[in-house]
């Protein structure tokens, strides 16, 4: 029987029935709360997802513009500056810092970009030719990277929310499909066991009562017999023989009534 396995191992006592009932109550409240949390998170999640989708599409455009401004640099400088740029990179001017955002108890980090002052690795790039394009290209790319940082925040939020929602949903489902049915099963089991005990007890009591009654009847008959014996010590013994069988019959009749 599957029901037997799907309950907790408790002794079917009234005390554990009480505990189980309290547990069921708790599970239901928890379920409601978690469900609500999951819904709130999912709502936020969908919103973020939509924004990611938009931002990713927008990014394509932003990066194209940035690429074109790099093409402009190549055009103006009249050569490829890639190598020189790679070699003169020293210290990041464009950095990020993380801050936190609280959504229904979940801390979502968000990146924020900032520019550090004073370290300009490429100030002289294109000094003789194309310097203005280089500066403009830097601005364009800085704007593009800002957009990328924003997208990265969204994506981090997405990954974390995804994880959190999975956990919450797992909990909701666990409560809904495992804990609640199991607790209910346990309660049912305890109840049936208790009923069984009740019936046994009732039968036992009945049995005891019956026995008592029979004993009383027997005692009574004994006493009566002795009394009669004492009275009729001198009377005819056949009379005694007559009364005996009649008594036994009556007793049998009594038993019949009971069962």
């Amino acid at each position: 029987m599957s029901g037997a396995a799907d309950r907790e191992a408790v002794f079917p006592t009234r005390q554990s029935l009480g505990i189980m009932k309290a547990k069921l109550q708790g599970a239901q409240t928890g379920h409601d709360l978690l469900k609500r949390k999951s819904e709130a998170l999912t709502k936020r999640f969908r919103e973020i997802t939509r924004r990611i989708d938009e931002a990713k599409r927008k990014m394509g455009r932003v990066m194209q513009i940035a690429s074109l401004s790099l093409a402009e640099v190549t055009y103006a400088v009249g050569g490829n500056i890639g190598y020189q740029i790679q070699e003169s990179a020293r210290s990041a001017r464009f950095r990020i810092r993380a801050k936190q955002d609280n959504v229904s108890g979940v801390l979502l980090p968000a990146f924020e970009s900032y520019l550090t002052e004073g370290n300009n690795d490429f100030a002289m790039t294109g000094l003789g030719k194309g310097g203005q394009q280089v500066q403009r290209c830097r601005e364009t790319y800085a704007r593009a990277v800002e957009a990328l940082v924003e997208l990265a925040s969204l994506q981090t939020a997405f990954v974390i929310l995804d994880e959190v929602i999975k956990v919450v949903n797992r909990r909701v489902n666990a409560i809904e499909h495992v804990i609640i049915p199991r607790t209910e099963n346990t309660i049912k089991y305890i109840n049936s066991e208790l009923d069984e005990l009740d019936r046994e007890e009732f039968y036992r009591l009945k049995k005891v009562a019956n026995k008592k009654q029979r004993d009383t009847a027997a005692d009574f008959a004994e006493m009566k017999k002795r009394k009669e014996e004492r009275e009729d010590e001198n009377q005819a013994p056949e009379q005694e023989a007559q009364a005996g069988p009649a008594d036994i019959l009556a007793a049998e009749e009594d038993e019949d009534v009971i069962f």
Binding site: N120, A123, M124, G126, L127, K129, G130, G131, Q132, Q135
Partner: peptide
Amino acid sequence: NITLNSFGTEL
């Protein structure tokens, strides 16, 4: 060009 591009640098 050198003049224009040197503004704001340590040159």
